[in-house]
Computed example of a mutant assay.
Amino acid sequence: MTGLLVLTAVPAEAEAVRAGLADPTVTVRAVGVGPAVAGATTARLLALAEAAGRPYRAVVSAGIAGGFAGRAPVGGTVLASRSVAADLGAESPGGFIPLDELGMPAELLGAGPTIEADPALLGRLRAALPEAVVGAVLTVSTVTGTTASTAALADRHPDAVAEAMEGYAVAVAAAQAGIPFAELRTISNPIGPRDRDGWRMREAITALTGAARTLS
């Protein structure tokens, strides 16, 4: 069995992770932006490793994210207690209906709209990153950009600390392969109306490099 597989969305995040690594057995790959490409690429990487007789021992989805104000500070680090497909479901006059509440047969839901982080892997990351905020990390296909939609997400997921675009998809691929999964994010901006002047990309990338020192 080979080492840990760390997957980011874009090359800049992968470079930040590599800059902090001390373990040469950790593999880092940028898999693309959004759930579709992230899930497909992760599944391919895991299948190729397994076919070669060198399966990975665990998968971590890592990168920068938006944080819910008052829950995760800009420049801080968060660990996902669970990764959530936050926009997978249906709209209704009474509000959003998650996929698992739509009455579909369980076999059609696959992993379901929420995947819990592997307890042992999450525990090791928490011990190594005691200042990290732990909570749900939401995966969305459209980045939240209004006050109303931010409030709706925060109300629907009271334990959510951050929002990104790949974690749940990577988690599904890991679950299908039977491999432990965790999600690690550093916060570049508060979720809500887009204010590029308020984004702190450099601080988030620096924090990502620091957090990567704990990955092994």
Rank of each mutant, 00 (worst) to 15 (best):
P24K: 12
P24A: 14
T25G: 13
V26I: 09
V26R: 06
T27K: 11
T27A: 12
T27H: 08
R29T: 09
R29M: 13
A30E: 12
A30C: 14
V31A: 06
V31G: 02
G32T: 06
V33H: 08
G34V: 08
G34D: 12
P35N: 10
P35I: 08
A36V: 14
A38G: 03
A38P: 02
A38V: 03
G39Q: 04
A40M: 15
A40K: 10
T42C: 08
T42M: 01
T42F: 02
T42P: 01
T42S: 12
T42I: 03
A43T: 08
R44V: 15
R44K: 13
L45M: 14
L45K: 06
L45F: 14
L46A: 12
L46V: 12
L46Q: 05
A47H: 05
L48T: 15
A49Q: 10
A49T: 11
A49W: 07
E50K: 15
E50W: 08
E50A: 15
A51G: 07
A51H: 05
A52G: 07
A52W: 03
A52N: 05
G53D: 04
G53E: 05
G53M: 02
R54V: 10
R54G: 11
Y56C: 05
Y56W: 13
A58N: 11
A58V: 13
V60Y: 00
A62D: 04
A62Q: 00
G63L: 08
I64K: 05
I64V: 15
A65W: 01
A65G: 04
G66W: 00
G67V: 03
G67Q: 05
G67S: 06
F68C: 07
F68I: 07
F68Y: 14
F68L: 14
G70F: 09
R71T: 10
R71A: 11
R71S: 11
A72H: 01
A72K: 00
P73K: 08
G75M: 03
G75R: 02
T77R: 02
T77P: 09
V78R: 03
L79I: 12
L79H: 05
A80K: 02
S81T: 15
V84M: 02
V84W: 00
A85V: 02
A85D: 01
A86I: 01
A86F: 03
D87Y: 12
D87Q: 09
D87E: 13
D87S: 13
L88W: 08
A90E: 10
A90G: 08
E91A: 15
E91N: 15
S92H: 06
S92G: 14
